[in-house]
């Protein structure tokens, strides 16, 4: 079965023909399988946001193609809008897009645009709200009365309510406190696990990536520089640093330990793994 999303020679140039011309994407070939949890990382301006806006047809490729389920999304211009219901995109600071009188109506905006039945919309709104942890009572309040973290979750629910096959989130935890971050990530993880939705998570936080993503894509200057599991990617700590990125803090600790002469394998990227490795070493030494 072909991947759910595929790009072929995708390039994008902003401001073509003006003095401000800038190549944002350069010949991207990418294939994403159904049910994958992709972590997309890259320095600011590396083309991540441009790339994800191509995947749901908000931007039109300057060159190359974007295929969803093996079909070019720009083949029929009238169908591009349907792609946006299948590939849900949550922008950075999505709470800035809330506009309705009640949270309920705001979450219902997407499903309403899909032209669904009223009962179907209601079902989806309740389901999406439950997924992100918005109570029924909050649903009928103004979105502007909610706290920052709740607003963010309500906005994410607005995309989830469309039941997209692919859920793309651009830095969904930016500007939240650690509890709020974990809350949102846990919801996304659950959603991925239960629904088997394909998830693409854009973030600057290496810990978030290490703990969640089944595959990591690293972008630099509009190109894909690396792709692979956390193990593959974080073993190139030097290259990542050159790109203005980092490895998870715990990996940094292990790298330092090895520099200090300890015989440890630095391919560790979560605290859990680190704990097991250290305990194992301890046992080996004392056995």
């Amino acid at each position: 079965m072909p991947g759910i999303i595929k790009t072929e020679g995708l390039s994008h140039v902003y401001g073509k023909g003006t003095p401000f011309e800038r190549k944002a994407l350069d010949n991207i070939d990418l294939e994403i399988e159904r049910g994958e949890f992709i972590g997309l990382i890259g320095h600011t301006g590396s083309g991540k946001s441009t790339l994800i806006q191509h995947l749901n047809g908000l931007l039109k490729p300057t060159e190359g193609r974007v295929l969803v389920d093996g079909k070019d999304i720009w083949e029929d211009i009238r169908k591009v809008r349907d792609i946006r219901f299948r590939v849900g995109l949550v922008f950075q600071y999505p709470e800035h897009q809330l506009f309705e009188e009640t949270v309920y109506k705001d979450i219902a905006f997407g499903p309403t645009n899909m032209g669904l039945e009223k009962s179907e919309i209601e079902e989806r709104v309740y389901e999406a709200a439950e997924f992100v942890g918005i109570s029924r009572e909050q649903l009928f309040r103004s979105p502007f009365e909610l706290s920052g973290g709740q607003k963010r979750r309500a906005a994410i629910a607005g995309v989830i309510a469309m039941r997209p096959d692919v859920l793309i989130l651009d830095e969904p935890t930016a500007g939240l406190d650690p509890a709020g971050r974990e809350e949102i990530l846990a919801r996304i993880r659950d959603y991925h696990a239960i629904r088997n939705t394909t998830v693409i998570l854009v973030t600057h936080n290496m810990e978030e990536i290490a703990r969640n993503a089944s595959r990591i894509i690293v972008m630099e200057k509009g190109r894909i520089r690396m792709t692979g599991t956390a193990h593959d990617v974080f073993s190139h700590a030097e290259d990542l640093r050159d790109m203005g990125l980092a490895v998870p803090q715990i990996t940094q600790v292990f790298l330092r330990l090895r520099e200090m002469g300890l015989d440890v394998d630095p391919s560790v990227y979560t605290v859990d793994q680190a704990k097991r490795k250290i305990l194992k070493m301890w046992r080996d030494v004392h056995a």
């Binding site: 908000l58 949550v90 905006f109 997407g110 899909m114």
Partner: peptide, 13 residues
């Protein structure tokens, strides 16, 4: 532009 894109992503026309 950003808000427009965000609403378009939810099917606004």
């Amino acid at each position: 532009d950003k808000i427009m894109n965000a609403q378009k992503a939810r099917g606004a026309d």
